[in-house]
């Protein structure tokens, strides 16, 4: 006796093909919906804000008058912030990832730490703001300086960088490690010469995406008391500052409709910065991938 009867197969064929087609359109619709939302958002922001974009907008400080308001302090402030966040979070993050993957004994404590790092990546940013307020602003008396904000943001994105780096390191084939150790290389030589070069594309992609998150975060900055109206540029990391999302948040919460347009122009600048950072990530990845 045969289990698969040709006739039933033929009879069911139609239904299977229809289901196949239906699902294709469902997924297409999901993609289009997401795209549509994105396009509407972009269109609204650009149509609202483009009129305010000008060299003056980039070179003016904040102002009570919407037509004179500029984003200089926030743009420069965000760049300062990144100059603290990028080295702090990447050095600490990659260091922790190397320790966890290459040095730590694989026991229960390590897997407990691993699990919690992944969980930390999901903690709301306000909580990190409170942590920063307690440790950096108050206990270490850094005040609402660039350094305090930078350390807080570093804590916020550290879990993401650690997890991305761990995955990149774990993806380096074991045979390469074996080959290096087999020639009498020490662990450190193997890490520097073999593991890190192979893992760098993954590490940098993850890190830059994490940095883009830091540059757009507002909540931690509000919690640690970063001001909005600033009429000077910071001279060093101990000075106070303001950042792009803070400035945008302030403008969009003002009653005058003209400020909504200013906020939209600010968002365009922020998005341009993000786009710039993401394209750096892509370039780095392509550059290093060519070596394989």
């Amino acid at each position: 006796m045969r289990y698969i009867e040709q006739q039933t197969v033929v009879k069911r064929m139609n239904g299977r093909l229809i289901a196949n087609a239906i699902f294709k359109y469902i997924f297409l619709a999901a993609t289009l919906l997401a795209l549509l939302a994105l396009v509407i958002l972009l269109f609204r922001i650009v149509s609202q804000g483009a009129g305010n974009l000008s060299i003056d907008f980039l070179t003016n400080f904040a102002s009570r008058f919407p037509d004179q308001a500029g984003i200089k302090a926030a743009l420069i402030g965000s760049l300062w912030l990144m100059m603290v966040v990028a080295p702090t979070s990447i050095i600490l993050g990659v260091g922790s990832a190397i320790y966890l993957e290459e040095y730590a004994k694989q026991n229960r404590i390590t897997s407990f730490i691993r699990m919690n790092i992944s969980n930390l990546a999901g903690v709301p940013s306000v909580v990190f703001g409170l942590l920063g307020l307690t440790i950096f602003v108050r206990a270490m008396a850094l005040g609402n300086s660039i350094l305090a904000a930078g350390f807080t943001m570093s804590l916020l994105i550290l879990p993401v960088i650690i997890v991305a780096s761990q995955e990149a390191i774990r993806a380096v084939p074991g045979e390469l490690r074996d080959a290096s150790y087999g020639m009498g290389a020490t662990k450190w030589q193997t890490i520097v010469n073999i593991i890190l070069p192979a893992a760098i594309p993954g590490i940098l992609t993850g890190s830059i995406l994490a940095l883009s998150r830091a540059i757009g975060e507002t909540a931690p900055l509000i919690v640690i008391g970063v001001p909005v109206i600033i009429q000077f540029l910071p001279a060093g990391v101990m000075d106070t500052f303001t950042a792009l999302p803070m400035q945008i948040y302030d403008w969009s919460s003002r009653p005058q409709p003209e400020f909504q347009a200013v906020a939209a122009a600010g968002i365009i600048v922020l998005m341009a910065v993000l786009l710039f950072m993401n394209s750096i990530a892509v370039i780095i990845r392509n550059k290093f991938d060519k070596r394989y």
Partner: peptide, 20 residues
């Protein structure tokens, strides 16, 4: 071990050159 492995070279089952 590092000293031992400089005296004793190893060739593996799957060719495993470095990506260099």
């Amino acid at each position: 071990v590092e000293e031992l492995r400089t005296r004793v070279g190893m060739v593996f089952q799957k060719p495993n050159p470095f990506p260099k």
